[in-house]
Simulated scan of single mutants.
Amino acid sequence: MTALQEYRRLEAIGLWREHAEDQRREVIVALGDVSLVMSSPSGEAIGHWSLPAVERRNPGKRPALYAPAPDSEEELELSDPEMIAAIERICAAIARTRPHPGRLRLYLAGGAILVGVLAAALWLPDAMIRQTVSLLPPAKRLDIGHQLLAEISNIAGRPCGASSGRTALVRLASRTYGPDNPPRIVVFPATIPDTLTLPGDIVVASAALAEDYETPEVFAGYLLAERTRSEATDPVEALLRHAGIGATFRLLTTGDIAAEPIHAHAATLLSHDTMRADESVLLDHFAEVGISSQPYAFAQDVSGESVLGLIEADPLRGQTTEPVLTDGDWVSLQEICTS
């Protein structure tokens, strides 16, 4: 889902609070392609909301009150009519992509016809998976991502949540994925694989990537490798291939997926071996964001033997690079699970 063209990079002043008991503070609200970003007047990023998840708490009233999720204590107050109109139009467009109960029988009938056509044409299961993935709206992708994240929390424990560390994660996401629509990064204690990508632009990362290394370049390298893998394999496609044709057909025809395949896939993600990212594409990403590939390479293999390509073809070799994070942000990120 992309924001309407006339609203690209729209900015307004708003009042934001992180917790219900906090005093509201003035922030600059920027509307991106699929995100709402809050910054302090000095330009410090303090919040990043996904537009498909944003909900209005007082429809029809002014000033408008928004939250990033139904059960969130975080809240944003807006009075600017143009910004409110932009958010309402985009949220309305997202709502139109969601399944409507009144159309369920039509979808089921259409699905039955589709099955007959597919059977007659000997359509392979992977073709149905690709079709389902291509038709899935962003709001449903985010919903599935939140379901997987909840299951990972049930298995691995609650994610780390120090507020200063979350701010540092917002900056790290922008640095490694670019400032336009970076993913939400969620850090868990060091009991999970290094990184995982969930549907809805959610990246799960192990706290060990911050706790076990001296500089943020290594963490950035792991995120770039995850970015490379997720570009090669859609996380929804990975879920459906694991869940099977029955779950795929249900998602295609009803817009829902059962809890069992969600739980099973979350357990698989936490136990699988991480695939190696395509080296040439990964090096292109390092060059794109201006980060040296050598710290990540030596974190993979201290001898350097198995990662010679990343070392010798380092696009920033011998150059002075912009810091990935400030020292203060890096310390906050290293302490995200201890604060």
Results as ranks from 00 to 15, higher is better:
residue 267 A to P: 09
residue 276 R to S: 15
residue 334 Q to E: 05
residue 40 S to K: 15
residue 319 Q to H: 13
residue 12 A to P: 09
residue 91 C to Y: 01
residue 322 E to P: 03
residue 242 H to F: 14
residue 203 V to R: 07
residue 115 V to I: 13
residue 243 A to P: 03
residue 213 Y to W: 14
residue 106 L to F: 06
residue 52 P to N: 03
residue 226 E to N: 08
residue 2 T to Y: 07
residue 36 L to P: 08
residue 62 R to Y: 11
residue 231 E to N: 10
residue 300 Q to N: 11
residue 27 V to A: 07
residue 179 P to A: 09
residue 15 L to P: 03
residue 106 L to E: 09
residue 182 P to N: 06
residue 71 D to A: 15
residue 321 T to F: 04
residue 338 T to D: 09
residue 174 S to G: 12
residue 229 R to V: 08
residue 257 I to Y: 00
residue 124 L to V: 05
residue 321 T to P: 02
residue 224 L to I: 06
residue 131 Q to W: 15
residue 94 I to R: 03
residue 257 I to F: 00
residue 188 F to I: 06
residue 91 C to H: 07
residue 337 C to D: 09
residue 308 L to E: 15
residue 101 P to F: 12
residue 330 W to Q: 01
residue 59 P to L: 07
residue 200 G to V: 10
residue 127 A to P: 02
residue 195 T to A: 04
residue 236 V to N: 01
residue 65 L to D: 05
residue 17 R to W: 06
residue 163 S to K: 13
residue 184 R to F: 00
residue 100 H to G: 06
residue 233 T to G: 00
residue 146 H to V: 14
residue 160 C to Q: 05
residue 203 V to F: 04
residue 116 G to W: 10
residue 116 G to I: 10
residue 336 I to A: 01
residue 132 T to M: 00
residue 209 L to K: 03
residue 8 R to M: 11
residue 249 F to M: 11
residue 211 E to I: 05
residue 117 V to G: 07
residue 79 S to G: 12
residue 124 L to W: 14
residue 28 I to S: 05
residue 315 P to C: 03
residue 106 L to V: 06
residue 5 Q to A: 15
residue 190 A to H: 10
residue 66 Y to E: 00
residue 3 A to T: 12
residue 324 V to W: 09
residue 220 A to I: 11
residue 225 A to V: 01
residue 156 A to T: 10
residue 87 I to C: 04
residue 102 G to Q: 01
residue 296 Y to H: 05
residue 92 A to C: 03
residue 193 P to D: 01
residue 227 R to V: 02
residue 333 L to Y: 11
residue 267 A to M: 10
residue 295 P to K: 02
residue 7 Y to D: 12
residue 170 V to K: 08
residue 305 E to V: 12
residue 106 L to Y: 01
residue 292 S to T: 13
residue 144 I to L: 14
residue 265 H to Y: 15
residue 8 R to Q: 14
residue 330 W to E: 06
residue 265 H to W: 13
residue 80 D to P: 05
residue 4 L to Q: 13
residue 113 I to Y: 02
residue 314 D to N: 13
residue 327 D to C: 03
residue 38 M to H: 09
residue 259 A to K: 15
residue 40 S to P: 00
residue 85 A to S: 14
residue 265 H to R: 02
residue 79 S to E: 13
residue 249 F to H: 05
residue 118 L to E: 15
residue 240 L to S: 06
residue 52 P to R: 03
residue 277 A to W: 04
residue 25 R to S: 07
residue 168 A to P: 13
residue 108 L to N: 05
residue 7 Y to W: 14
residue 29 V to Y: 10
residue 294 Q to Y: 11
residue 236 V to T: 10
residue 5 Q to W: 10
residue 79 S to N: 06
residue 295 P to T: 06
residue 134 S to C: 02
residue 87 I to W: 02
residue 135 L to P: 00
residue 246 G to Q: 10
residue 272 H to N: 08
residue 305 E to P: 00
residue 142 L to C: 00
residue 252 L to H: 04
residue 249 F to Y: 12
residue 68 P to H: 02
residue 252 L to G: 01
residue 183 P to Y: 04
residue 113 I to M: 10
residue 220 A to M: 04
residue 195 T to F: 03
residue 151 E to I: 03
residue 314 D to K: 04
residue 293 S to H: 10
residue 168 A to S: 14
residue 303 S to H: 09
